[in-house]
């Protein structure tokens, strides 16, 4: 009974992208393929849970699809509050969708800071002529250099139609989020040692025979 539980990390990932860049099919491809036997008739593709094991850690990804229409653009911040990662999807045949991605990145950064792990994803590579290499495409190379220029972002190419690169993309993103999370935890523990005792109002959970200790409150209860 005393064996250690496997910790499950919960990560929230938001999917951002313009209307028809294939966000939904990306998610469906990712979730449907692997758990085909488990998957019942799909009612919705807007909220999806997926559990993976990465580097010995159990990770639960909650993938939140967002409405991509222009009129809902302002609502973005409500969606990506508290998210650990963001998948920004653009259409490799549509330069406009990439400029939208840049907009979102700016917004994400201003709200969540650098803590959020980004994945810039060029979808629909199946629509490109197959004889040329992907990097020769001007839009893709632009996106690549763009993602290099921002912190904590990696560029991927995927095809939801032929199931190319999607699993790799999510796996890599999960790994990065995990690393980032561990780094943050370390920082936090360091900081909490420094800040111990300085915070004004804390509620400490007391043990059975201990009094509840409320620093903001001088009254103690009688046991």
């Amino acid at each position: 009974m005393s064996e250690r539980r496997v910790q499950t990390q919960n990560f929230k990932v938001v999917l951002l992208g313009e209307g028809c860049v294939g966000k939904t099919s990306l998610v469906l491809r990712y979730v449907d393929n692997k758990f085909q036997e488990k998957h019942q008739t799909t009612l919705q593709a807007s909220f999806v849970n997926k559990t993976l094991t990465v580097c010995g850690e159990r990770v639960k990804l909650s993938i939140w699809d967002t409405a991509g229409q222009e009129k809902f653009h302002a609502l973005g911040p409500i969606y990506y509050r508290d998210s650990n990662g963001a998948v920004l999807v653009y259409d490799v045949t549509d330069p406009d969708s990439l400029s939208k991605v840049k907009k979102w990145v700016k917004e994400l950064r201003s709200i969540l800071g650098n803590s959020v792990c980004l994945a810039v994803v060029g979808n629909k590579i199946d629509l490109l002529p197959s004889d040329k290499s992907l990097s020769s495409n001007s839009l893709i190379s632009e996106a690549q250099t763009y993602s290099l220029s921002i912190e904590n972002a990696v560029h991927y190419c995927t095809s939801a139609k032929f199931d190319k690169g999607i699993h790799e993309m999510f796996l890599d993103l999960t790994k990065r989020m995990l690393e980032h999370c561990q780094k943050q935890q370390q920082q936090q523990t360091n900081r909490s040692y420094q800040n111990a005792g300085t915070s004004n109002r804390t509620l400490r959970i007391a043990d059975d025979n201990e009094n509840i200790d409320l620093s903001s409150d001088s009254n103690k209860c009688n046991c």
């Binding site: 999917l15 919705q44 593709a45 609502l75």
Partner: peptide, 10 residues
Amino acid sequence: EPVSADQFLP
């Protein structure tokens, strides 16, 4: 077909 957020939110 499964419903996406694009349809759900409106």
